[in-house]
Amino acid sequence: MQVSEYKPRIVAFCCNWCSYAGADLAGNNRLNYPAEVKIIRVPCSCRVNPSFVLRAFQRGADGVIICGCHPGDCHYTSGNYYTRRRMAMLFSMLEYLGIEKERTRVEWVSAAEGAKFAATMNDFVETVAALGENKRLEDLRCKR
C-alpha cells in the first residue's frame, strides 16, 4: 500500500513533431496515465542536453523519460540518433553514480501512438514508483 501512496516526480521531454503529438493524441482519446508525468516540449529529442536530465534529478525528479520520433522518422532526419547515443552514455554514467537505470528511459513514440504514449507512461511511473524516491542526486539545498 505504501508504494501506491508515494507519487514519484516524472519529467518527460517530448519532441514537438512526434511524441508531443502522441501525448496530445492520448489526450484526445482520453487515455489515462498518472498526473505525475509532466511534459516539457522540445523541438527535437536531440535538444535534450544531458545537463537537463541531471538538473531534473538534482531538483528532485524521480524519473526522466525522453521521447522522440522513431529511428528513421526524425523530423530533422537524424536528431533521434544523436539522442540515442548521447543518452546511452549518460544513462550508463548515471547508473554508475547510483541512479538505477530504470529511472531513465528513451522511448520512440510517433504522433499516431497515443496508446503507446499512455502505456509507456503508465509503465514508467509504475517502475519508478517501485524504486521509491530518488535521493542519490537530489540537492537538498534546492528543496523548498
Binding site: R9, V11, V42, P43, S51, A56, R59
Partner: peptide, 18 residues
C-alpha cells in the same frame, strides 16, 4: 537555441520538480 534556450528549459524543469 532561441525559443528553447537551456535556461528556459531548465527553468521548466525546476518548476516541475518543485
Amino acid at each position: 537555441l532561441r525559443g528553447f534556450t537551456a535556461q528556459q528549459i531548465m527553468s521548466e524543469v525546476d518548476a516541475i520538480c518543485k
